[in-house]
Amino acid sequence: MRFLHLLKGDMKFQFRYGIYFIYAIILIVYGVAIHMVPEAWKYRLGLILVYSDPAALGMFFMGALILLEKSERALNSIAISPVTVDEYILSKLGSLGLISTLVAEIIALQCELGNYIWLGISVFFASCLFSLLGLLVGSLISGLNQFVIATVPCEILFLLPPIVYLFITPQKWMGMHPGIASVEVVMQGMGGVANLWILLLWVILLYVVTRSFVKNMFIRIAI
């Protein structure tokens, strides 16, 4: 029950702080762009947009949310409440994952990507991955400038490879990369279920690391 309250609260803050508004703008801009590009480009463009924006934006939104909660000290009150570190993280991942998935599905429909259920699952976990990266970085720093700089390596390591992957000859081992695994699930649907496990494994691994950082952040800031 508490988790649902937390989830509802997170969605309310995201709405109040304009994150849903930004997603709406993205949808409009991308909608126009998709209708303007030649038909043959739509599929690849759709894959890039679905992966790079709704999913990866979670990293920046998560960072912004953490920095806001830190600067307004709302996090202090959460740290000394019955909310567990897991509930806190999962609620953030869930709320951002849901909106990312919804936006990705709308873009996918416009680009007629197909495999919509697998796409939704893939985008949700990719969003979790990026949100965890944002949370990890956000738990360590306190300023927006620091955050922007600190996320550059994450972008290079996690965001760039799947985009490059779409334009080169694919190799099997590349599927070990979480972003490429996510794109493969979207492209192959049911056939890419092994990639989904790889993506999930990355999410779990990153969750374990991020959890310990968030726990330390709670101790640091609480009083």
């Binding site: 109040r16 000290r73 009150s77």
Partner: peptide, 14 residues
């Protein structure tokens, strides 16, 4: 346990 922090710990936009 209830904690009243020295500085406000509230969501400013709510």
């Amino acid at each position: 346990i209830g904690v009243d922090f020295e500085f406000p710990s509230l969501y400013e936009k709510l």
